[in-house]
Simulated assay, not measured.
Amino acid sequence: MKKKELIFIAGILILAGVLWLGFQIAGKRSHNTIRITVDGKEFGTYSLSQDQIIHIGDTNVCEIKDGKVTMIEATCPDHYCMKQKAVDEHGGSIICLPNKVVIEGENTAEDSDSESSPKIDAVT
Protein backbone atom coordinates (compact mmCIF):
# COMPACT_ATOMS: atom_id res chain seq x y z
CA MET A 1 0.00 0.00 0.00
CA LYS A 2 1.03 3.52 -0.64
CA LYS A 3 1.48 6.11 2.09
CA LYS A 4 -1.61 8.09 0.96
CA GLU A 5 -3.79 4.99 1.14
CA LEU A 6 -2.64 4.25 4.69
CA ILE A 7 -3.35 7.82 5.77
CA PHE A 8 -6.81 7.65 4.17
CA ILE A 9 -7.66 4.33 5.90
CA ALA A 10 -6.36 5.63 9.25
CA GLY A 11 -8.48 8.78 8.87
CA ILE A 12 -11.61 6.72 8.17
CA LEU A 13 -10.94 4.52 11.22
CA ILE A 14 -10.38 7.54 13.46
CA LEU A 15 -13.59 9.18 12.21
CA ALA A 16 -15.55 5.96 12.80
CA GLY A 17 -14.13 5.70 16.32
CA VAL A 18 -15.07 9.27 17.18
CA LEU A 19 -18.63 8.78 15.87
CA TRP A 20 -19.01 5.52 17.79
CA LEU A 21 -17.81 7.16 21.00
CA GLY A 22 -20.23 10.07 20.47
CA PHE A 23 -23.18 7.72 20.10
CA GLN A 24 -22.15 5.77 23.20
CA ILE A 25 -22.01 8.92 25.30
CA ALA A 26 -25.30 10.26 23.91
CA GLY A 27 -27.07 6.98 24.63
CA LYS A 28 -26.33 7.09 28.37
CA ARG A 29 -28.91 9.65 29.40
CA SER A 30 -30.22 9.33 32.90
CA HIS A 31 -33.93 8.90 33.58
CA ASN A 32 -34.40 10.08 37.14
CA THR A 33 -38.16 10.41 36.93
CA ILE A 34 -41.13 8.62 35.45
CA ARG A 35 -44.16 10.15 33.79
CA ILE A 36 -47.55 8.46 34.05
CA THR A 37 -50.24 9.23 31.49
CA VAL A 38 -53.82 7.97 31.42
CA ASP A 39 -55.71 8.16 28.11
CA GLY A 40 -53.06 10.56 26.76
CA LYS A 41 -53.39 13.02 29.67
CA GLU A 42 -50.59 13.44 32.21
CA PHE A 43 -51.44 11.81 35.54
CA GLY A 44 -48.20 12.76 37.28
CA THR A 45 -44.41 12.82 37.35
CA TYR A 46 -42.60 10.93 40.11
CA SER A 47 -38.98 10.59 41.24
CA LEU A 48 -37.34 7.17 41.13
CA SER A 49 -35.31 8.04 44.24
CA GLN A 50 -38.35 8.00 46.56
CA ASP A 51 -39.97 4.60 47.30
CA GLN A 52 -43.75 4.82 47.07
CA ILE A 53 -46.93 3.15 45.87
CA ILE A 54 -49.01 5.09 43.33
CA HIS A 55 -52.71 4.39 42.76
CA ILE A 56 -53.51 5.31 39.16
CA GLY A 57 -57.23 6.00 39.23
CA ASP A 58 -59.33 2.93 40.05
CA THR A 59 -57.57 0.67 37.55
CA ASN A 60 -53.83 0.32 38.22
CA VAL A 61 -51.30 0.45 41.04
CA CYS A 62 -47.56 0.83 40.50
CA GLU A 63 -44.70 0.69 42.96
CA ILE A 64 -41.42 2.60 42.97
CA LYS A 65 -38.84 0.64 44.94
CA ASP A 66 -35.03 0.76 44.82
CA GLY A 67 -35.04 3.08 41.79
CA LYS A 68 -37.34 0.85 39.72
CA VAL A 69 -41.04 1.06 38.99
CA THR A 70 -43.28 -1.95 38.35
CA MET A 71 -47.01 -2.41 37.92
CA ILE A 72 -48.24 -4.42 40.91
CA GLU A 73 -52.02 -4.36 40.34
CA ALA A 74 -54.26 -3.92 37.32
CA THR A 75 -57.93 -4.49 36.50
CA CYS A 76 -57.23 -5.45 32.89
CA PRO A 77 -58.06 -9.04 31.90
CA ASP A 78 -54.63 -10.13 30.61
CA HIS A 79 -52.27 -8.47 33.17
CA TYR A 80 -49.52 -8.06 30.56
CA CYS A 81 -48.57 -4.73 32.15
CA MET A 82 -47.68 -6.55 35.37
CA LYS A 83 -45.33 -8.87 33.45
CA GLN A 84 -43.38 -6.09 31.68
CA LYS A 85 -39.80 -5.22 32.59
CA ALA A 86 -39.36 -2.60 35.31
CA VAL A 87 -38.59 0.99 34.33
CA ASP A 88 -35.36 2.25 35.90
CA GLU A 89 -32.71 4.95 35.40
CA HIS A 90 -31.95 3.46 31.97
CA GLY A 91 -35.49 4.20 30.78
CA GLY A 92 -38.19 1.97 29.39
CA SER A 93 -41.96 1.89 29.53
CA ILE A 94 -44.86 -0.06 30.97
CA ILE A 95 -48.08 0.06 28.96
CA CYS A 96 -51.55 -1.14 29.99
CA LEU A 97 -53.58 -0.94 26.77
CA PRO A 98 -57.06 -1.79 28.14
CA ASN A 99 -56.78 0.89 30.85
CA LYS A 100 -54.83 3.32 28.61
CA VAL A 101 -52.06 3.74 31.21
CA VAL A 102 -48.47 4.47 30.15
CA ILE A 103 -45.49 4.69 32.50
CA GLU A 104 -42.27 5.87 30.88
CA GLY A 105 -38.84 7.00 32.01
CA GLU A 106 -38.17 10.70 31.50
CA ASN A 107 -34.84 12.34 30.80
CA THR A 108 -33.55 14.74 33.39
CA ALA A 109 -34.47 18.38 32.79
CA GLU A 110 -31.04 19.32 31.47
CA ASP A 111 -31.11 16.49 28.89
CA SER A 112 -34.67 16.94 27.68
CA ASP A 113 -34.53 20.75 27.47
CA SER A 114 -31.21 21.01 25.68
CA GLU A 115 -31.19 22.60 22.26
CA SER A 116 -28.99 19.86 20.79
CA SER A 117 -31.35 16.97 21.56
CA PRO A 118 -33.46 16.01 18.55
CA LYS A 119 -37.21 16.37 18.77
CA ILE A 120 -39.29 13.91 16.77
CA ASP A 121 -42.37 15.58 15.39
CA ALA A 122 -44.04 12.96 13.19
CA VAL A 123 -46.41 10.05 13.35
CA THR A 124 -46.14 7.16 10.93
Rank of each mutant, 00 (worst) to 15 (best):
Q52Y: 07
Q50F: 01
Y46E: 04
I12N: 02
L19P: 08
L6F: 10
Q24P: 08
Q50H: 10
H31Q: 05
G17K: 09
G11D: 03
L15E: 06
G57T: 07
I14C: 03
G27Q: 11
I9N: 03
G44C: 00
A16W: 06
F43M: 03
F43V: 01
F43K: 01
E42N: 09
H31Y: 13
S30L: 02
W20I: 14
F23Q: 15
I36H: 03
G22K: 14
G44I: 00
V18M: 07
S30P: 04
V18K: 07
T45C: 04
A26T: 12
T45K: 14
L15R: 08
Y46S: 05
D51I: 07
S49N: 12
G11R: 05
I36P: 02
E42T: 11
A16L: 11
I12Y: 01
M1V: 12
E42V: 12
G17A: 11
L13A: 13
S30T: 06
S49V: 08
I14M: 10
G27A: 13
L21A: 12
L6G: 10
G44F: 00
M1P: 13
E42D: 08
M1Y: 14
W20G: 15
G44L: 04
I9W: 12
T37N: 11
S49F: 08
L19V: 14
I9K: 12
G57E: 06
R35L: 03
T45D: 05
H55F: 08
F8T: 15
I25C: 00
A10E: 01
V18T: 11
A26K: 15
K2W: 06
I34W: 03
G11Y: 01
A16K: 01
K28R: 14
Q52C: 03
Q52A: 09
W20R: 12
L21W: 13
I56R: 04
G17L: 09
T33V: 00
S47E: 11
I53W: 09
K28E: 06
L21K: 11
K28I: 00
I53S: 14
L15H: 05
D51W: 02
K4C: 10
K2P: 10
F43D: 05
F23C: 10
R29M: 06
E5G: 10
G17E: 02
K3T: 10
K41Y: 09
D51Q: 05
S47Y: 09
V38K: 13
G44V: 03
G57L: 05
G44W: 05
I53F: 07
Q50D: 13
G11A: 12
K2M: 10
A26W: 11
I25G: 03
L6M: 10
K41C: 01
R29A: 09
T45Y: 02
K3Y: 05
K41F: 08
G57F: 02
V38R: 10
F43P: 01
S47D: 11
A10N: 06
F43S: 01
W20F: 15
I14H: 03
V18H: 08
Y46I: 00
D51H: 07
Y46Q: 06
R29L: 09
L6V: 09
S30A: 08
S49W: 07
